[in-house]
C-alpha cells in the first residue's frame, strides 16, 4: 500500500489539468442518471406544483386563474392547517424513542448478549413488513374490545383506551407503531458503527483507568454522533411526512381533526376538496419548512457531531 501511494503522489504533479478535466467528465457522466431523474421526475413536477400554488387550480377544470399569493395568505389563517401542523410535530415523538432503544439494543448486541442473533432477526421483522399489511394488523390488535392490546391492558386497568376513536390515543398508537417498526432497522446502523470503533481507543482508556460507564459516555457516544446525526436527519424528514398511518387509522382526520397531519391535509385538499392550488401552496411552504429544519440540523451538527477520524 505504501508503495502504491508513493507512486500516485509522484504522478500527481504532471498533467494535472488534463487529468482533472477527465475526472470531471467521468464524475458528471457517473451521476448523469441521477441528474436526469432529478430533472424529469422531480424538478419538472415540482415546477408545476409551485406554479399551481399561485392559481386556483382544482384539477377538474383546465382553466386556472392566477390568484397571486392568495393561497399563501389563506394558509396562515386556516385553523385546520395549524392543527395539522401540531399533529405533524407530534409525530416527531417516536424519533428519540426508537433511537434510544435502538442504541441500547445495538450496544447489547455489541457486547454479545445471549441469543443476539435470534434477537436481531426478530427485531428486524417489523421493518420488512409492508405498511398496508401492518396497519391492518394494528387496527385489529388495537380493537378496543377484541384486540390483544386491550385484553392485556384490562388485566391492569379498568377502562383501556379506545385507540381508534379517541384522537389522543390514536396519535399515541401511531407513535408506538412507528417506534416499534423502526427500532430494529435503526439498530443496524448503530451495530455497524459500534463495530467500526477501533479497539485501541478502549484499550487506551482502560490504561487511563476509565470504567465501562466512562468509556461509554466518553468514547462510544461521541463516536456514534455521526450515525445519530444521519438518523436524525432522515428520521425527521420521514416523520414530518407521516401520511399512510393517518389515512388508514383515521380516514377523516380523526375527531376534531385531532390526528390529521400536514401531508394528509394536503392530500385531502388536493383530492377530496378539489383545491389543488391550495394544496400545492401548503406543500411548497411545508417543503421549505422541512428544508429549513434540515439546514438548521446541519448547522447545529457542527456543535455536537464528532468529526474526528
Amino acid at each position: 500500500m505504501d508503495c502504491i501511494s508513493a507512486r500516485s503522489k509522484n504522478i500527481k504533479g504532471k498533467g494535472q489539468s488534463k487529468l482533472k478535466r477527465r475526472e470531471s467528465l467521468a464524475g458528471l457522466l457517473f451521476v448523469s442518471p441521477t441528474i436526469i431523474y432529478f430533472i424529469v421526475f422531480f424538478l419538472l413536477p415540482l415546477a408545476v406544483c409551485i406554479y399551481a400554488s399561485f392559481t386556483n387550480w382544482n384539477i377538474l377544470s383546465p382553466n386556472r386563474v392566477f390568484v397571486g399569493t392568495l393561497n399563501y395568505e389563506r394558509l396562515f389563517v386556516d385553523p385546520k392547517f395549524w392543527k395539522a401542523l401540531k399533529n405533524t410535530l407530534f409525530m416527531l415523538i417516536p424519533i428519540p424513542i426508537y433511537i434510544t432503544f435502538a442504541l441500547l439494543f445495538a450496544y447489547a448486541c455489541h457486547k454479545n448478549i445471549l441469543g443476539q442473533k435470534v434477537f436481531r432477526a426478530i427485531y428486524y421483522l417489523p421493518y420488512i413488513s409492508s405498511i398496508v399489511a401492518l396497519t391492518l394488523i394494528w387496527m385489529w390488535l388495537f380493537n378496543s374490545k377484541y384486540g390483544l392490546v386491550n385484553n392485556f391492558l384490562s388485566l391492569f386497568v379498568d377502562n383501556p383506551p379506545s385507540w381508534l376513536s379517541d384522537p389522543f390515543w390514536t396519535k399515541w398508537m401511531i407513535v408506538i407503531m412507528i417506534s416499534w417498526k423502526l427500532i430494529g432497522f435503526t439498530s443496524i446502523y448503530y451495530i455497524a458503527a459500534l463495530k467500526s470503533i477501533p479497539k485501541s481507543y478502549y484499550e487506551a482508556a482502560q490504561i487511563d483507568g476509565a470504567g465501562p460507564r466512562q468509556q461509554f459516555f466518553k468514547i462510544t457516544l461521541p463516536l456514534l454522533t455521526p450515525t445519530t446525526f444521519y438518523l436524525l436527519v432522515i428520521g425527521m424528514i420521514g416523520s414530518l411526512q407521516t401520511f399512510v398511518e393517518v389515512q388508514m387509522f383515521a380516514p377523516d382526520g380523526g375527531r376534531g381533526y385531532g390526528v390529521g397531519t400536514i401531508v394528509f391535509y394536503i392530500w385531502q385538499k388536493a383530492f377530496s376538496s378539489s383545491q389543488m392550488g391550495y394544496a400545492c401552496a401548503i406543500a411548497t411552504v411545508f417543503g421549505l419548512f422541512i428544508l429549513v429544519i434540515t439546514v438548521i440540523q446541519f448547522t447545529l451538527s457542527r456543535k455536537w457531531v464528532f468529526e474526528g477520524n
Partner: peptide
C-alpha cells in the same frame, strides 16, 4: 471523484425526499 457542482448536486438530491409526493402526483 471531483467534478463541478458536486456538493450542489448532492444537496439537490437530498431535497427530493423533502417534498410530499402527493402534490407531484
Amino acid at each position: 471523484l471531483s467534478f463541478p457542482f458536486k456538493n450542489a448536486i448532492f444537496v439537490m438530491l437530498l431535497t427530493t425526499i423533502m417534498v410530499p409526493l402527493v402534490v407531484l402526483l
